[in-house]
Design a protein around this nucleic acid. Structure first.
Lengths: 107, 107
DNA sequence: TCCATATTTCGATAACCGTGGAAATGATGA
DNA sequence: TCATCATTTCCACGGTTATCGAAATATGGA
């Protein structure tokens, strides 16, 4: 993962409404959530929510799929894991160190 | 870790200069680095670097210690790990999932 | 005490970001 | 085709952020 993508992802998450949206999608897992459901849960007006979802999608942290007249948003676990890995890479000059924020999420 | 702290940490990292500073400190490990060394490595003017270091310190991502006429900045691994854990908590509705960004860094 | 070096604070500027109402777009079923 | 519901785009406002030169503040050594 490149620095630019990392910064975009971090910036996307560094905002209360977006972090909540993303967390809700992370918890939701495979089935994902529609903007309507997210809006109800989090109490965000449609325009605001749409703005933030686009921001998250741009950052690669969520994906969307149309299903009838609904959209389904899902967390992109691989991208999130790339982000975590970037932050911990080459930690501590090779000293023994348990971070190496693991792996991938096969949800 | 609370949402507010998480957002502060993410915002602190969502900026190229700061991310580079933090990464340099993560790699440096226990010995840490002085602002002078960071400035040389990253080519940042003193005022800019100082601004960013304060930002990182405020976010809890780095700590500093005075040593003679030098300051030593270090990455706060525990805080970083708290951040990673927050992002992956309760992932995927309890489906089996390898994320759970591990543990702590005993560097 | 005084100097040289390390680092921070001040201040000004330009650019970016979050918010949400109102209007537009897109999709479906009748 | 039309009515309806879901979602996005447009727009304007106020607030926050990054940058860095110049000046101020440590600190230790001579």
């Amino acid at each position: 993962m490149e620095e630019k993508a990392v910064i975009k992802a971090l910036a996307a998450l560094a905002q209360a409404s977006r972090l909540r949206v993303f967390r809700a999608l992370v918890v939701a897992g495979r089935p994902g959530l529609t903007p309507g459901a997210l809006g109800n849960t989090l109490g965000l007006p449609p325009a605001t929510l749409s703005f933030h979802l686009k921001e998250l999608a741009h950052a690669g942290l969520v994906s969307l799929e149309r299903s009838g007249r609904h959209l389904i948003y899902r967390a992109e676990y691989a991208h999130m894991n790339g982000l975590l890995a970037y932050l911990t890479a080459n930690c501590c000059e090779g000293e023994p160190c348990a971070v190496v924020a693991s792996t991938s999420c096969p949800c």
